[in-house]
Nucleic acid binder design. Structure first.
Lengths: 250, 250
DNA sequence: ATATGCGTTTCACTCAGTGAAAAATTAGCA
DNA sequence: TGCTAATTTTTCACTGAGTGAAACGCATAT
């Protein structure tokens, strides 16, 4: 397993992982909503793996149903992924509960809406509205980005789950119960995030709306935040920490 | 890599697969809607792999988000599965289109409803109604069973996709546009399956309802079939092959 | 105290995985 | 219809990544 060379065999300035399992899972990352169907050539190039290695892994992934392969040599995610997602949902019923809510928020505000949770040092998108928007700006459902990458949702998640990210912003979040980030991750975007709590006060995650800065005023954003608060409470959840001191502990 | 011994190191009379990737994916099969959270001990036992081997694979699966691990040592499917499922859905919009339909069928008939497709020599469940029923009898969403295992849906899929399973039953399906299987897979169950076609006549899969034999009469089943036909046509799909001769070709 | 169950680490052996290269297949083109 | 280029697939000898028995550590019973 030589995997020599200073970085990049692909155009991605990333070294492909070593370890067969790592590599196999790494291959699955080549697929996205933007590019759901790929052929060997693309997958090998994008992953940085040798074509022979890639082919072997793909075969295995196909036999286990994680990928499907068509006659014309294209691969795409297979039905096994559905099975696992169904199990994931069953273990975190919050997804099912909030799906409709996120959709409503997007429809009412006309902006992109999403729901995030923290998982270790990652911020994971569990729900995205289904409106079609420019893919470049938004993460896929299930995708993770490091907390350190910031963004409105990250600061809310950090503040309420005790992750040390930016204490100043955390303080703002804890007193105001929302955070607005202007161009923090992307110059042209503004996003507002609110924490979400179970009825019993348990923190579950953050709802966020994202808009193009050039198309919204501060008042628009405030109105969006109100929409979020209303929809969240309709879902029998809260955007306010239950009591001042209970939630500081964990 | 000794993997010696005539079969079974687990209680499953199955030999665990060789190949790191195979084993890793094999581990994911340990999880189900019935048993969504497992600890190392269980996973190692059920998969038949050594604990050390299992642990290594689990670590990798966790780092890629396919599994999550809690403090108390339990593992369960992670958010990466959501991402892949979202991509899968985007490539086969039939799932989104029929989800509501399957749910309606289940609600109207009071029986278990599902949607299957053929994938190679496997029959894959893409949709299951969300009513809670006895898990022992029904397959999870995304789960595959060999076509050769039979069942009403298998015969419908075989008939309309040119899979050689049981030519006599296939002929019945092709003339009557449905199939009823009584106790074929499970002595106590009866299930009825109907083919589903796009408006342009393309065969897409089979809808099936399953009931306990002791609780339904033949007339009940006929009524169920009518419900399926109605719901499918409401979804702008058809339960009849477009024209007598067009569909014989493929 | 002693035992049992579980997760984790260690380490020497060895076979599964690697990737360059060749072969087979498919697509494009004149 | 041939000829060429592009892509997928197979082959094979080398080797280091993966293996698993055993030891360890840490709980929680007994």
């Amino acid at each position: 397993m030589k995997n020599l060379s200073s970085k990049s065999r692909n155009g991605n300035d990333t070294v492909p992982p070593s370890g067969v399992l790592d590599r196999g899972l790494h291959l699955m990352n080549c697929f996205s909503l933007e590019r759901p169907r790929l052929q060997l050539r693309d997958i090998a190039a994008q992953s940085g793996l040798d074509k022979a290695t890639t082919l072997r892994a793909l075969k295995t992934l196909v036999t286990y149903g994680y990928l499907e392969k068509s006659e014309d040599g294209y691969y795409w995610p297979g039905p096994a992924t559905l099975r696992l997602a169904a199990i994931f949902r069953s273990t975190s019923n919050i997804v099912t509960r909030l799906e409709r809510t996120v959709e409503n928020i997007a429809l009412e505000t006309g902006q992109a809406a999403a729901f995030f949770i923290r998982s270790g040092d990652q911020r994971v998108c569990l729900i995205r509205d289904r409106q079609k928007r420019d893919f470049r700006y938004f993460v896929d459902v299930g995708a993770s980005v490091p907390m350190s990458a910031g963004g409105a949702a990250a600061h809310v998640l950090a503040a309420y789950s005790g992750f040390d990210l930016d204490s100043e912003k955390a303080e703002f979040v804890l007193t105001n119960n929302y955070y607005i980030s202007r161009g923090e991750k992307n110059e042209h975007l503004v996003s507002a995030a609110l924490p979400i709590f179970e009825a019993d006060g348990e923190f579950v995650g953050a709802a966020a709306i994202t808009a193009l800065r050039s198309t919204v005023t501060d008042d628009d954003i405030d109105r969006c935040i109100e929409v979020v608060r209303r929809e969240i409470s309709l879902a029998m959840l809260s955007t306010q920490a239950a009591a001042e001191n209970d939630n500081a502990a964990f």
